[in-house]
Nucleic acid binder design. Structure first.
Lengths: 162, 162
DNA sequence: ATAGATGCAAATATTTTGCCGCCAG
DNA sequence: CTGGCGGCAAAATATTTGCATCTAT
């Protein structure tokens, strides 16, 4: 049994390998949630962009598509998506201040592994993690709806340099 | 193999079962860090109080011991302790806004399991978790120094009520 | 038609900083 | 004695809210 590296590093990439395109939009429609022009744009940003964007970045990308989108709408839309469990809110161990990061929620939970020296963030999945969650669910008598794991340390590259 | 419930619920209790008293203070002395009157008080609060306090609560408790402690000093001291890896900073899944919570770091990492309905937070340890961390460390080539897992869901009690 | 969304501006909340006098070592 | 620390006030960030207007369904 081994961890599955997602081979996706968060610095600058803009690829979404996980959720099918239009996933979020379809979820909203299914839930009878009003699809405004602005929500479409924010959702599009969340679907097509890399993970770990903070509200500011999301706003910038959204305004690139449609000037008439305000910060407030971004916050409100993120909150909406969050409440429906469609996106996750992370802090990535507060490595870079107290910003919050958002990412669209894929099928399976993944673990964020960050280097506290260079700031690279990898995402990994592991069967062991799924087992752990099952065990906690049964031992604590809880029906798990959110699970978040963030791990920090020094990566090989950074250790080699020092 | 089974999860070890810590039987410690975070709502209101003020017990520290984990670190020996004076642990933080001794660490600071060992590291040649100046021990001011104010730091002593904040450290005392962190050592003797329950986990999951936000800056506001820490300030209140500190001022109960010593009026002349300001919010700024609390923030600066928390930052100091954080930088030295002596306390952890959590957000507990942002269940109650964007506050940050602090707890003094015990020997072993534990998982925070929160009910998103009633807000209760339990802490559990699990051998499986230790295994998972080892696996990630070797598979990702990283020397882990921080690990944080937060799990949210509906607890039995709340499910029964609805 | 109308419930619910957005925009604007202002309010809140939270955390950080500059500067200067003070104290632990 | 002296370099780091704490207090004060103000700044910088980050997020939320009230209200009037607009729009998706």
């Amino acid at each position: 049994m081994s961890v599955t590296p997602a081979h996706r590093v968060s610095t600058g990439e803009r690829i979404n390998e996980q959720a099918p395109p239009g996933h979020l939009q379809r979820e909203l429609t299914a839930r009878r949630i009003r699809l405004t022009r602005q929500r479409r744009v924010v959702v599009q940003v969340m679907e097509s962009a890399a993970r770990h964007m903070d509200a500011e970045e999301i706003l910038n990308l959204a305004q690139q598509i449609d000037k008439g989108i305000t910060r407030v709408t971004v916050y409100r839309t993120l909150d909406l998506l969050k409440r429906h469990g469609l996106i996750d809110e992370l802090d990535l161990l507060h490595l870079r201040g107290h910003r919050h990061y958002y990412e669209s929620h894929g099928e399976r939970d993944h673990i964020h592994v960050a280097c506290i020296s260079c700031g690279k963030v990898r995402e990994v999945e592991s069967p062991l993690y799924e087992e752990l969650k099952k065990q906690i669910a049964s031992d604590c008598g809880i029906e798990i709806s959110i699970a978040r794991t963030e791990i920090g340390g020094i990566c090989d590259d950074c250790r080699a340099k020092s």
